[in-house]
Amino acid sequence: MKVTQLSTFIENRPGRLHAACTALAAKGVNIHTLMLADTAEFGILRLIVADPAAGKVALDAAGYVTRLTEVVAVEVPDDAGGLARILVEADAAGLNIEYMYAFSTAVGQHAVVIIRFAEPDRAVSELQQRGISVIAPVTLFAA
């Protein structure tokens, strides 16, 4: 049920982000969503792509340093307090969230957030036990 996220190190220089995206495009790797965490000097680009392994090969070949990590896609009811309820449950289960970001497209009637948990496996089972919908990659990419 986990989703594989591709991340890469980007220097804070003009053209670097563009070059990374071009490297992916050249290999036909479609970007579903992305999130750039940046500091004054560098950024970490996290990507959800259709084919993470191919994306990694494309970026590695273009000279980027990359890493594949497991994240969890969680369905969020599109109403006030929807996200808060999920976070309350994660808290109750003692799940440590490293960071999170919104998925760019909705799945059905719902918004989706991508959450990087410290323990992705435990997060999936805890959330599911608590009635929160975790979205499989296949559903996510079909959206």
Binding site: S7, F9, A37, F42, I44, V65, T66, R67, E98
Partner: peptide, 18 residues
């Protein structure tokens, strides 16, 4: 240069390395 051994997707880890 940031090599594969030290790269992390977490900003805190990279800031700590720095």
């Amino acid at each position: 240069e940031v090599g594969a051994e030290v790269f992390s997707d977490q900003v805190s880890a990279m800031e700590s390395l720095h």
